[in-house]
Design a protein around this nucleic acid. Structure first.
Lengths: 161, 161
DNA sequence: TATTGTTATACTCTATAACTATA
DNA sequence: TATAGTTATAGAGTATAACAATA
């Protein structure tokens, strides 16, 4: 009888323990942990290519749009224009892109991928694909696609803005 | 005839454009964007409660484990012990937790939530729930649960470590 | 000698303010 | 007057090194 009560008590305590809000169930924690791990994998896989994850972002943006000033890229990348200067400096020094003044508005720098930049971008994308596959190694293809879809929907504005 | 060829060419170009690897499809980009937005929502919702997102993490850990030194919490939170000092300073000053030397090992500080700390934690969790619901407003309950499950599986080690 | 908490210091990342050259 | 790029500076956030107390 006492044993039964004791067991019931312990079970109730165990449930109560489980009901405690846990850090590991918080969405911020899960997103951050996935992101940190993915950034680590990118650092590994991108190192031999010679670009950082942030730089890959710049290359992707330059590849995706035809005419682009530093400030346009900065805006799309979500960084300040002053931060952009250093990024472009590094990529220009590595000969992955070229700056030239815009003929129409000579205050602007038009950024353009060099042939070498295009080649490095292709390599970097393959490296990034590998990093992503490694992060998603526990999921099958359908689940991976689901995760991507759900994240895309989450980060989209409600009214198609 | 020429028009047809032109249209076909433009369509091919459009497809080619779509085939370009885009930043917006990169998992790092999606995760970061979701995280930044969720952190912003937390900042809003947690402000009236008087804790930061990082501090909520500490409170959740203190609530989840029974006996905890500063260094244990730091380890679980993924920050340096020197970073932990400032976090604990702030929470102690706000009377949400108390430091006391461990009787068994007087080098250690045992951290304990105060009654006030428990109350604030409950408030903060409700605020965090709201922030999460707002982020997930485009998803139904099943999809939200799916996202959480997929992220949990992604951040788990393969062999149940 | 090793460990916990602490402080001082340095490093990274990023933004704000100020300057230049263009418009 | 306003804007694009640049530079210098300052502010978070975090880690490394050194120190005191304790083991």
């Amino acid at each position: 009888m006492l044993l039964t009560i004791t067991i019931m008590y312990l079970q109730r305590m165990a449930r109560k323990q489980d009901e405690r809000p846990a850090l590991s169930t918080r969405l911020t924690y899960l997103l951050k942990r996935a992101l940190v791990e993915l950034e680590g994998l990118h650092a590994e896989h991108l190192a031999p290519v010679g670009v950082s994850g942030r730089e890959l972002g710049v290359l992707l943006l330059l590849n995706g749009f035809d005419t682009t000033s530093q400030q346009q890229v900065a805006g799309r990348l979500g960084v300040d224009r002053t931060t952009m200067v250093g990024l472009v400096d590094a990529l220009e020094e590595k000969r992955f892109l070229a700056r030239r003044p815009d003929a129409g508005d000579r205050r602007r720098n038009v950024l353009e991928l060099t042939p070498n930049g295009h080649a490095v971008l292709a390599q970097a994308v393959r490296a990034s694909d590998q990093a992503e596959r490694q992060l998603l190694s526990q999921l099958d293809d359908k689940e991976s696609a689901q995760l991507r879809t759900l994240l895309t929907r989450v980060t989209q504005e409600p009214s198609g803005v």
